[in-house]
Amino acid sequence: MKGGDLVPADYAEVSAKVAMRCAALSHAGSMDPSHPEVGTGASGKSAEGEFVRIQLRVRRETILEARFKAFGCSGSIASASLASEWAEGRTLEEAGTIRDSDLASALELPAARRHCASLAEEALQRAILNYREKCRLGDHLNSIVSTGGSQ
């Protein structure tokens, strides 16, 4: 049930941490998704007001660079920014352990905005998966090239 004018009854205030992150927008950006070192993951639906994308540039299992773009409320933007910051410099395996609950508590997200952190976690997981699939496909192609090679 919604409250008064345009503001829903369960509207939750934005924490100072979220506001600071939305002002700084650190780790915002994009990378060429077709680059072999780049994994891309997305989550959310624009019709539901939230769509988050996270991209990772990886070399030897280490995330050299993480970038996000987000369409969504401040909580979604802040979560994607923080997830990218945490992922950068970690191994894929380490980054895979980043949880929405950790993002939410670091950002002091109220319960009603937990889903913002879940979107960021999901986008990150999917970016990792996308990179791994790319590698598998790449290895596969390489093996075709080296065994049945035309050279």
Binding site: D5, L6, V7, P8, D10, Y11, A12, V14, A19, C22, A23, G49, E50, F71, G72, C73, S74, G75, S76, I77, A112, R113, H115, C116
Partner: peptide, 24 residues
């Protein structure tokens, strides 16, 4: 391409309302 609530926060010295509100 820009969600209303994030836009309100970006211009937080201006009081307006949005038809988009992040709730549950």
């Amino acid at each position: 391409y820009v969600e209303g609530e994030s836009l309100m926060l970006a211009m937080d010295d201006v009081a307006v309302s949005s038809g988009s509100a992040c709730t549950s």
